[in-house]
Design a protein around this nucleic acid. Structure first.
Lengths: 351, 351
DNA sequence: CATTAGCACTCGGAAAGAATGAGTGCTAAT
DNA sequence: ATTAGCACTCATTCTTTCCGAGTGCTAATG
């Protein structure tokens, strides 16, 4: 798509004022917002041109212009200046991030909240799905005469534990044997490799009258199941209603419903090889998103797995700012996973 | 408040048809819905009476009647028949409940979802706050040359763990000593009793050059902090918009915002000595709830602590059914906590 | 005295019409 | 190529009109 310099400036002016005002923008206001030295009539001609190209559209004959999805796309690809976070902004973001982020669950939850607060759009955080997870290590701890804790550590260093109470007492030796059996037979296996035969054989080897093996093994299987799946957290659903395009309930409701379903949100991904993704209106495949936009950024969870954070909002979105903030949070998350800590707020760097 | 039998029947008819239709109900439709053998004129007289008593109200002169909050209150207190769950219903509920409910976090999350699905209203689940939580037991497990897992078990049998990586290698003996020190010095203490002095003394006693003590202790403190707070999970926010009273965005939005704030929802409680609570419209203290109703039920988490589940919806709510379902879920949760398992679906009993 | 039939009246809401004005597209002039 | 000027379009807003469900009251009835 080839545009003259003047057309680009006009397109950009339309996008940027529309993003602010949410009102169709007319030739006069472009005159004010950009510093073109031409008359409104000239601009009208250009607008007609841009409309013919499918970059803008007219809600009705006597209204101003509104960016069409293609227009936003052009803006995002070619016109948008990279939004540089100001010092204040960085500080605010860091402040927001400096929370007790630890367990994955918590991290995802908080990340979603933070992004939503930062962008004023509903946000979500997805942890990476990991198709092959295995148990790295089992531990069992005797806690009372007839209760023990099983600790399962997966190969992505996630820990889970559960307390088991038993009808009978248990000796330290029995537990010891249980532990070495488990570590011997069930580490390094994916969920599929936990076959009933294997479990039965192990139980027999231990002479397991209380079903200890199956207890712990099925716990381990739950853990693997859980680790394998993507975790989906959404936040800030309520902020959707704050935007004028969703004042119309018939638009807000399907989107809300979409967002409330974890499996929908979990299906959102960033194309291979990219770290961010912007899908504008009809570019989205899911019906409920057809007239909204989705902005995504990936973060690194270590282990070559990627998580995703993102927001959903009207196509009229300040893509530059939203992208910048998402990227910043994604970057911070990557560092969190890499180093086990959040970046120092004084540190400054360009991606 | 004394009503004649006929007045009661009329009030009840108004509430019940209004709950279904969401339209003001007139004298004629009452005639149809109830089996009074009187004319519409008589009913009109009674309606005027009930309106004068503040039990009904008229949106405008030429409209039918709508229950006033006092009317709902009377209905809930005196008129409402206890909704008996049908066999099908029970089955559906059980099916919904039979999920992998384990970790508290997950339980709360699921409970909220289930209640929301069951009632078609936004729902929430609160775990009990526990003012005095202590660590019951510490365990440490060596996992690699320079990494260990700390497991903290609190007196409500909650388990948390964390993996610590260290710059230096660690001997099994060192860890052993760490464990006994922690168990000796820090079990049975509330968060407040973890004084800096105590921590310093413990570190010295161990000759702790790597800061092991402070690592594990601050982890334990996080755990206590977390266990002390109430956990708040909300679900089904989107179902709010499905109800006609929230088609008006100016009503839906504040309520959404209210529900999105954990601290708001967390403040909802059931009065001492009751197991359920119904707050109708203006009976609510929080501004955002003034024209909605809140229905709550408590469940028993063991340890004499009570959790709460509940829903928020329009005052026009089918209180009988909602209450019955909430109670059922609450009961199931209680049993889950008591026995560590869900009630058998074949089992049937009256509360 | 409670109940009822009958009827005038009220008032919200839908439908139709009129006024407003921002913004366009076109034409003719520069 | 640009621009001033002007007729025209069409959402939006404000009135006006109309409709009917439902009431409240009165007078008649058992």
């Amino acid at each position: 798509m080839d545009l003259t310099e003047r057309q680009k400036r006009i397109l950009r002016a339309v996008v940027e004022t529309y993003v602010q005002t949410a009102e169709p923008v007319g030739s006069k206001s472009i005159l004010a917002h950009s510093d073109l030295n031409v008359s409104s009539a000239t601009i009208r001609n250009e607008l007609a041109e841009l409309t013919a190209l499918g970059l803008l559209e007219q809600p009705h004959t006597s209204a101003g212009r509104v960016p069409a999805p293609k227009g936003y796309r052009f803006y995002v690809n070619a016109l948008m200046e990279e939004h540089r976070l100001s010092v204040q902004e960085t500080e605010r973001l860091n402040e927001a991030m400096h929370l007790k982020l630890r367990e994955l669950d918590r991290v995802m939850d908080e990340a979603g909240r933070i992004v939503s607060r930062l962008t004023q759009y509903p946000a979500f955080a997805l942890s990476a799905g990991k198709p092959r997870v295995t148990v790295k290590r089992f531990d069992v701890l005797l806690v009372e005469r007839a209760a023990f804790i099983a600790v399962v550590m997966t190969d992505n260093d996630h820990l889970s534990n559960r307390l088991f109470r038993l009808p009978q007492e248990l000796s330290r030796e029995q537990l010891q044997m249980l532990a070495s059996l488990l570590n011997g037979s069930f580490t390094g296996l994916t969920l599929e490799e936990f076959t009933p035969q294997l479990i039965r054989a192990a139980a027999q080897a231990l002479g397991d009258e209380m079903g200890l093996v199956s207890m712990v093994v099925s716990f381990a299987m739950e853990v693997l199941e859980e680790q394998r799946g993507r975790m989906v957290k959404t936040a800030g659903l309520d902020s959707l209603l704050a935007h004028p395009e969703y004042q119309d309930l018939s638009r807000a409701q399907p989107l809300m419903r979409y967002l409330a379903q974890a499996e929908n949100v979990g299906a959102l991904t960033v194309p291979e090889g990219q770290t961010t993704s912007v899908l504008i209106g009809p570019e989205n495949v899911h019906e409920a998103l057809k007239d909204s936009s989705v902005v995504l950024a990936t973060y690194d969870m270590g282990d070559n797995t990627k998580g995703v954070i993102g927001v959903v909002g009207p196509t009229r979105m300040d893509y530059a700012t939203v992208l910048a903030r998402l990227e910043y949070v994604a970057q911070s998350l990557s560092r969190l996973f890499e180093r086990g800590q959040l970046p120092d707020s004084t540190e400054k760097e360009d991606p």
